[in-house]
């Protein structure tokens, strides 16, 4: 375990120093996330100005959903997207062999090998919005609600990771899979607003088929006291299943890779 932590520390310090080589990028990323966020907030504001309540969510609570969404987008850009791109590269260039011959779990290596600082502005902004939404609403959140909401947020990160890893595993068969990040982006995009704002069929799809509802709406729901423990339990089950699926599917893919590749 200690070896894994140590490896992680060196992985990240190496990739951060690689990112630091390009300083302008970071400033650009910060600028672009402020602009995107501004757009989203403007949209929400336009809706709520007229007194319309999106899916039964008041302004502050919908803001919390936007905060969670922005946070997840930041987590995705920081920790997940750069690693997903590399899995595809490893398969295409044949350097996956180097990873498989290391005495370390290959999924661990491929999931945490790099971090990119580009998403950090979104992580900070997202948390700030959630904080703002919660502290300025009429009834402040309860401690239990806050704790279960944060737990659900952690589970949401796990779900997002597992779904992304499932998708990048497919590159073992279809090497030209450059659009995983786009697909994941589009997927999370639907979580930008409270899920109850969508028509019934969409709600069902994004809750039970693609668990986007569990990623953004549920953490916000729990934090704002709009949902009970059944939502948290649901999030635990969904996250657990997705993680197990991503591990199982990766093993299956490796069995294929090692019997069919030349």
């Amino acid at each position: 375990m200690k070896r894994y932590f140590n490896t992680l520390r060196i992985f990240w310090s190496a990739s951060i120093s690689a990112e630091m080589e390009y300083r302008v990028n970071f400033a650009m990323a910060a600028f672009s996330s402020v602009m995107t966020l501004g757009g989203t907030l403007m949209m929400l504001f336009l809706f709520y100005r007229t007194g319309y309540e999106m899916g039964g969510w008041p302004w502050r609570d919908a803001l919390a959903v936007v905060g969670v969404f922005t946070f997840l987008e930041g987590m995705q850009a920081t920790f997940m997207a750069p690693n997903r791109t590399r899995v595809t590269e490893h398969v295409r260039e044949g350097t996956l062999d180097f990873v498989l011959l290391k005495p370390i779990n290959s999924q661990f290596w491929l999931s945490v090998r790099t971090v990119s600082l580009w998403g950090v502005p979104n992580i900070i902004l997202g948390l700030a919005i959630v904080g703002f939404a919660l502290t300025t609403r009429e009834t402040p959140p309860t401690l239990a609600g806050l704790a279960s909401g944060l737990l659900a947020l952690g589970l949401a990160v796990l779900m997002l990771y597992s779904l992304g890893y499932l998708l990048s595993t497919i590159s073992i068969w279809y090497i030209k899979l450059y659009n995983i990040t786009m697909a994941m982006q589009a997927l999370v995009e639907t979580g930008r607003y409270p899920i109850t704002a969508y028509p019934g069929a969409y709600q069902a799809f994004f809750t039970f088929v693609l668990p986007v509802a569990f990623m953004t709406t549920v953490p916000a729901r729990l934090m704002t006291g709009r949902g009970g423990t059944e939502w948290l339990l649901g999030a635990v089950i969904v996250a657990g299943l997705l993680l197990a699926l991503s591990i199982g599917f990766w093993r299956f893919a490796l069995r294929y890779y090692t019997s069919a590749s030349s």
């Binding site: 070896r3 690689a18 044949g94 062999d97 290391k102 290596w109």
Partner: peptide
């Protein structure tokens, strides 16, 4: 160990030292 002349495992943008530290950590 396996060395493949056509493939490389070094991190492109960093000095070799960084890649070597990564491998050292992986091998404990």
């Amino acid at each position: 160990t396996l060395v493949m002349g056509q493939k490389q495992q070094m991190i492109w943008d960093l000095p070799p030292m960084e890649s070597l530290r990564v491998n050292a950590a992986v091998y404990g």
